[in-house]
Each structure stands twice: as structure tokens, then as C-alpha cells.
């Protein structure tokens, strides 16, 4: 039996130190090790996007990352966005646009969209759809999610007109 490895992670601003088996996936570590069950597990091979979380600000598939690889990393899960009493700006746009129905895919979408908003100007709906293609939703038909991204993009542009990372072209 392989030895467990000691890892230190900061999840939603809280530091944790745990011993984990090397084969433990980050998604299972978050759900079963830290009880943060907002990170959902769908396909477990990187297709559905439900388990997407932010690791050091970059969206990653928690099912394609080992918990040992997250040693010393800062992780943000859906629990770090907000709660029913005080939702994050992105959660509010999802609510206003009806960007979810059953909610299973939503935590992954929010992580992906956060990364998209930070990296790209999202100049067109087509580009938004291209970037959302790594997350599957079986309820909304995507239109309301696209609408929520457009609203979040415009809100951010109003809030911070400069300091946007400009994409090529």
C-alpha cells in the first residue's frame, strides 16, 4: 500500500492540512475530505465540466487533478462564491437570467465563467458559446447561461472599464 502524502491547501480562504492517498482525485478530496459537496462529480473523465473549480485562479477539472497536485495551492469552490443570503455578482446574474434549473452543472459553469471573464474580452456570443463548450447543461439549452455571461461581462465592463486583459485581434 503506497504511503499517504501530507498536503496543505487553502480552500475558500481556509487553510487545511491533510494526509491523502496519491490516487485521491481533487474532486473527491473536496467532497469527502473537506465536506464541500458543492463541487459536483459527473463523468469523472473531463468531459462534462461539473467538477470545475478554480486552482490559483485558473479553472481546472477537479476530476483530472490529483489532490496531491494541489499541495500549496489556493482553491476556490462554489462554497467560496456566496450563499443564499449573500450571493456573488455572478450568482445574481444566473438568478436574474434563470441560468439554471436543476443546478447540477452550475458550480462548474460559475468556475469556468469566472476564468473566462478574467481572461477574455468575450466580444461575441459565438465566442462565449465556444468557451462554454467544455461544460454540459441538460436543462437550460444554454441560452440563459449565455445571457448571464453577457450580463456579467457588461456589469464588469461598467465597474472596471480599464485593467481588462486584451485578447489578440
Amino acid at each position: 500500500m503506497p504511503f499517504k502524502k501530507r498536503i496543505r491547501v487553502t480552500v475558500n480562504g481556509v487553510r487545511h492540512e491533510r494526509s491523502v492517498e496519491p490516487r485521491l482525485l481533487l474532486s473527491d478530496f473536496l467532497r469527502h475530505g473537506l465536506n464541500l459537496t458543492g463541487t459536483h462529480v459527473g463523468c469523472e473523465h473531463g468531459i462534462c465540466g461539473a467538477c470545475t473549480v478554480l486552482v490559483d485562479g485558473r479553472s481546472v477539472r477537479a476530476c483530472l487533478t490529483l489532490a496531491v497536485q494541489a499541495d500549496n495551492a489556493g482553491i476556490r469552490t462554489i462554497e467560496g462564491h456566496g450563499n443564499a443570503q449573500s450571493m456573488s455578482a455572478l450568482q445574481k446574474t444566473f438568478k436574474r437570467c434563470h441560468g439554471l434549473q436543476c443546478g447540477f452543472c452550475t458550480p462548474g459553469f460559475l468556475a469556468t465563467i469566472e476564468d473566462m471573464l478574467n481572461k477574455y474580452p468575450l466580444e461575441s456570443e459565438g465566442r462565449i458559446r465556444e468557451l462554454l463548450s467544455g461544460n454540459l447543461c441538460r436543462c437550460t439549452g444554454y441560452q440563459n447561461i449565455v445571457d448571464a455571461v453577457l450580463m456579467a461581462r457588461d456589469e464588469r465592463a461598467q465597474a472596471e472599464p480599464v485593467n481588462r486583459q486584451v485578447e489578440k485581434e
Binding site: G46, G49, T52, R58, S59, V60, R61, L64, T65, A111, T112, D115, M116, K119, L131, S133, G134, N135
Partner: peptide
């Protein structure tokens, strides 16, 4: 190349 979250890693 795949999707943003895959390209990140």
C-alpha cells in the same frame, strides 16, 4: 485544443 480548463493544465 479542448476546453479552457483542459488548456489550463
Amino acid at each position: 485544443v479542448a476546453h479552457l480548463a483542459i488548456r489550463n493544465r
